[in-house]
């Protein structure tokens, strides 16, 4: 027997749930959204005002021929970019930036890993050693720069005194542009390797012990275990350090400013931007264009690393 359904079309319509109208939120969704706004808006506003607004302003200034301190400026479009890339300084500035970044990132990470391996050993005094290695990282760059300037001073520096002890003259660390770059790189690596060491140490201590023990039982020596197990498994740590140290190297300023105020031989992109606007030249528009170039480089590096390098990282 078939039971026939009866009823008004309106009743039938009530039986099928009506589609929710777009934009109409339930009370709970709306409440959640306001909570989200209350929590996020202050931070978003701060980020907008102190990060994105200056960024946008800087991009606008890069299109101006503007002398810092002057109330007026001329719109010049991309002339500042053209002037930078066609100037005789551009290859030197870009080259210095590349050398400084590659050497400081490579040096900090390689030495940091070696130090981490040493600190990972179960011997007495490692707690003190870990603190000592990490301490320079948290010191003020200005203070570190000043102290190292006294060490490197060819006239009465500690290094000069040691070299005289073995009958050698001190190199002109501060006046010679090439040696200035070497000097700043040494100090930067010394200051930052503690950070890499501590992060690597955390990575080493989280490696699975059973894999290591299995490799040992299979006859793999320490070097083989390090190269075939530790290094691949440290991939995420290395990737994280690569991004963070590269970004901070490209933004290194305090040591360069204190140790080589003239920027002769040590003018990286960020320091050149500073010198052009605030150092002596007062070319605010031109300086802004250099900052935009630096921003673009940082953006490209980060995107490339996220897109290509991260895929090759082995996560345990």
């Amino acid at each position: 027997m078939t039971r026939q359904l009866t009823g008004s079309p309106a009743v039938t319509a009530q039986a099928v749930p009506a589609p929710r109208r777009r934009g109409r939120w339930s009370g709970r969704t709306r409440r959640d959204f306001f909570v989200f706004l209350a929590l996020a808006l202050p931070n978003l506003a701060l980020i907008a005002v102190f990060t994105y607004l200056p960024l946008i302003n800087n991009m606008y200034y890069s299109t101006l021929d503007w002398t810092l301190g002057s109330a007026s400026a001329t719109v010049v479009g991309f002339d500042n970019y053209i002037a930078f890339f066609t100037s005789s300084d551009a290859p030197q500035v870009l080259g210095t930036t590349a050398i400084f970044t590659v050497v400081t990132v490579g040096g900090s990470m390689a030495l940091g890993l070696l130090v981490a391996l040493a600190l990972n050993a179960k011997v007495r005094g490692t707690t003190f050693a870990r603190s000592a290695v990490f301490a320079p990282y948290v010191l003020s760059g200005v203070g570190v720069g000043l102290v190292w300037l006294f060490i490197f001073d060819p006239g009465y520096g500690v290094l000069s005194w040691l070299l005289r002890g073995i009958g050698q003259q001190s190199p002109q660390w501060i006046n010679d542009p090439q040696l200035s770059l070497v000097m700043v790189i040494i100090v930067y690596v010394w200051k930052n390797l503690g950070y890499c060491a501590v992060v690597y140490l955390a990575g080493l201590q989280s490696l699975p012990k059973d894999v290591m023990e299995a490799a040992s039982l299979d006859g793999a020596n320490g070097f083989r275990r390090f190269m075939s197990i530790s290094v691949p498994l440290l991939g995420p740590t290395t990737f994280f350090l690569l991004i963070t140290t590269m970004i901070s190297s490209l933004q290194a300023f305090d040591l360069i400013r204190i140790m080589t105020p003239l920027g002769n031989g040590t003018s990286t992109l960020i320091y050149e931007a500073y010198l052009q606007a605030f150092g002596a030249y007062n070319r605010a528009g031109y300086s802004a264009s250099i900052s935009v170039v630096l921003f673009a480089i940082l953006l490209i590096i980060t995107v490339l690393q996220l897109r290509f390098v991260e895929r090759k990282v082995h996560y345990s």
């Binding site: 607004l53 946008i56 302003n57 606008y60 200034y61 101006l64 002057s70 007026s72």
Partner: peptide, 20 residues
């Protein structure tokens, strides 16, 4: 909007470059 916002601050872009 960003360009308009940026143009609100900074130097004026009219007038001569000669000393003021």
């Amino acid at each position: 909007a960003a360009a308009a916002l940026a143009a609100c601050g900074g130097p004026s872009t009219g007038g001569s470059a000669a000393s003021t």
